[in-house]
Design a protein around this nucleic acid. Sequence first.
DNA 1: CTTGACCTTAGACCAACATCCAAGGTTTAT
DNA 2: ATAAACCTTGGATGTTGGTCTAAGGTCAAG
Lengths: 150, 150
Amino acid sequence: MYRIGELAKAFDVKNDTLRFYEKHGLLTPSSRSDSGYRMYSEEDKQILSFILRAKTVGFSLADIHELLSIEVDKANSACADVKVVVDAKLAEVETKMAELNHFQKSLKRLSNACCGGSESAADCTILEALASDVNNIHPEQHHHLNKERF
Amino acid sequence: MYRIGELAKAFDVKNDTLRFYEKHGLLTPSSRSDSGYRMYSEEDKQILSFILRAKTVGFSLADIHELLSIEVDKANSACADVKVVVDAKLAEVETKMAELNHFQKSLKRLSNACCGGSESAADCTILEALASDVNNIHPEQHHHLNKERF
DNA sequence: CTTGACCTTAGACCAACATCCAAGGTTTAT
DNA sequence: ATAAACCTTGGATGTTGGTCTAAGGTCAAG
């Protein structure tokens, strides 16, 4: 069991951030000490790790709540319902991966094109790197399903 | 050339968002009409596409500005400097890709585990899917573990 | 039994990223 | 030539995701 400060320190976030996540239903410490201190378990730690990782790849806290509630609602939701949510998130993940692949390719091309020496960077631009890409791919449709706030 | 409303509509953003990006140096329309309307070129469209794509994978506007200014500064910056920035961003991209790979694997496992039929979702949780992964991020500190009282 | 490092709460405050509004000028279609 | 549908500006407002403050309780160590 970890106290709030221990867990926060381990993940380099503020205590307040953990309280914020709790207030918004993302991470509730599994127990409290006699004196009311929040006590976080290993599983709580795991959840925090998940939240922070999901954030770095562009998921909002609302998205993350949705992902986590796959667990919370398990008694209530039929497997088919879960599958719908999971598959939707999977599609989002795959879109993001495609974007990143694209970025990676462009950046690599840039990095190689750039000498790494002291010449002018005249030919070093992201847009030039992207230019070879035929770009009628619109960034994904913002499907607004009833996205409950978290 | 596109007027603001045309470009905004094409990418499903608000006109205000384009003005906001302009105010913050991310996307300045390449010209103005006689009456002062913003006129966006194909290249501007390209830049907007870039901005929105970068946003979906978790880059902040500040990050994006940095990426775009690789171009803007090209006369001023030595190639080596550019390479440093590019390689740093490349590392970020690769970190994000690793996270997403991980998510993808977990979600796929979930999707497969979930029957897609009407059984209970009892075994469908992100955390279970992630459980096989040993959490390793910040291995550090642990002077004392404190006693458990429950 | 006090000191200092922890923790609690409620609520104010903040930065990033938009989004809306008011008052007015421009274009296009009828 | 006038309505509808654009566009301009500056400034106010909203959402998301925290971060800080104040007033006070807890706990191990000297």
